[in-house]
C-alpha cells in the first residue's frame, strides 16, 4: 500500500467530515485542512499544495510550509499516513 493510499479510501465530505473506513474513526477538518487532504490524495507535492492554498485563500502566511507540515504531523499521529511519511 502506497504512502497516501489510505487517504484515498477516506470518506471526505464537503463539511470537512472525515470517515476512516479501516478503523471507523471520524474527524473534522476545516476548509484548509480539507484542501491539504485533497491535495495529498491527488499526489500533489508540498509546493503544489501550497500553491493551491495561496490561490484559494486570502492572508496566507509566508511560512505556509510550516502549517502544511504541522497538518501532516496530525495525519501521521492519527495513523492516516505512515509514520515515516513526509512531504
Amino acid at each position: 500500500m502506497g504512502a497516501t493510499d489510505k487517504l484515498k479510501d477516506l470518506a471526505l465530505s464537503e463539511s470537512g467530515f472525515v470517515f476512516d473506513p479501516y478503523t471507523g474513526s471520524t474527524f473534522s477538518a476545516n476548509d484548509t485542512g480539507r484542501k491539504i487532504l485533497d491535495g495529498l490524495r491527488r499526489g500533489l507535492d508540498r509546493d503544489a499544495i501550497a500553491a493551491e492554498l495561496r490561490q484559494g485563500w486570502d492572508g496566507v502566511p509566508d511560512d505556509l510550509g510550516r502549517d502544511i507540515d504541522d497538518f501532516v504531523l496530525l495525519l501521521r499521529r492519527q495513523h492516516l499516513l505512515p509514520p515515516d511519511f513526509s512531504l
Binding site: S13, S15, G16, F17, F19, T26, S28
Partner: peptide, 11 residues
C-alpha cells in the same frame, strides 16, 4: 445513519 452523525459532528 453516519450522515446524521456527520451533521451533528460538523454543524
Amino acid at each position: 445513519d453516519i450522515a446524521d452523525f456527520e451533521r451533528m459532528a460538523t454543524a
